[in-house]
Simulated scan of single mutants.
Amino acid sequence: MSEDSTTPENFTFPLRVRVSNTVLPRAAVASFGFGFIDEGYSGDWSRIGAIAKESEELLKVTAFVVVPLCLFLIFFFSKEVED
């Protein structure tokens, strides 16, 4: 850009959104839990040959442990540390 440009060099976005520090870990745990639900209960992966039928059955069983654990972690991360 030329030197006579009207765009300021230190432009800041005028809208400031305050996001909690727990949003990213909660989203990661939720995605992990949803992955187990999708993998174990949809049946699509073994049908198209991506995984074996036995692996899908194992994922169904482990989803009963992983999904409640993920829910616990989501609520555990929701407690913000007070200064």
Rank of each mutant, 00 (worst) to 15 (best):
V29F: 00
Y41I: 01
V19A: 11
F77C: 03
F13S: 09
P8L: 07
R16H: 08
A50G: 08
F72G: 11
A30I: 10
T7W: 13
E39L: 13
S20C: 12
I48V: 15
P14L: 06
C70F: 01
V29K: 01
E56P: 04
V19Q: 09
A50S: 14
G35H: 02
T12K: 12
L69K: 07
R26I: 10
S78Y: 08
A27L: 14
I37R: 08
I48Y: 14
F13P: 02
V61W: 10
L69Q: 06
S78C: 11
D38V: 14
F76I: 07
G40K: 01
L58R: 08
W45D: 03
S42G: 04
K60C: 10
V29T: 08
L58N: 07
R18N: 00
V29M: 05
I51P: 06
E80L: 10
F13W: 13
F34T: 08
F76S: 10
F34S: 08
S31V: 13
L58Y: 07
I74H: 02
N10E: 09
E39V: 11
F13T: 09
F76H: 15
K60P: 07
L24H: 12
S5T: 10
V66M: 05
V29E: 02
L71Y: 07
E54H: 09
S46M: 09
K60S: 05
T22N: 10
V81C: 10
E56A: 04
I51H: 02
K53T: 15
E39C: 09
S31F: 14
E9F: 13
L24D: 09
P8G: 09
S31E: 08
I74L: 02
F76R: 14
S46C: 09
F72E: 02
Y41D: 01
V65G: 06
V23D: 04
A52M: 04
T22Y: 05
E80M: 06
V17T: 15
F77G: 03
L59D: 03
E57F: 08
F64W: 11
A28E: 04
G33M: 00
L58M: 09
P25W: 02
L69V: 13
V17L: 15
F64Y: 13
F11M: 07
L24T: 10
L58G: 05
R16Y: 06
L71K: 05
S5G: 08
L58D: 03
T22K: 03
V67R: 01
G43R: 02
A50V: 13
T7M: 14
F34V: 11
L24F: 11
K79T: 13
K79N: 12
W45N: 03
G49K: 06
N10I: 06
S55Y: 08
R26S: 15
D4H: 12
I37D: 04
A28M: 12
T7A: 13
I51K: 07
V29W: 00
F75M: 12
V61P: 01
S5N: 15
P14C: 07
G33H: 00
F76Y: 14
K79S: 05
T6E: 15
P68C: 03
P25N: 03
A52W: 01
E9V: 14
T6V: 14
L15S: 11
L73N: 03
N21C: 02
E3N: 15
G35A: 04
F32H: 01
F32M: 02
A63T: 04
D4T: 12
L71C: 11
L59M: 14
K79G: 08
F64N: 07
R16P: 05
V61H: 12
S42W: 04
P8K: 13
K79A: 09
D4L: 15
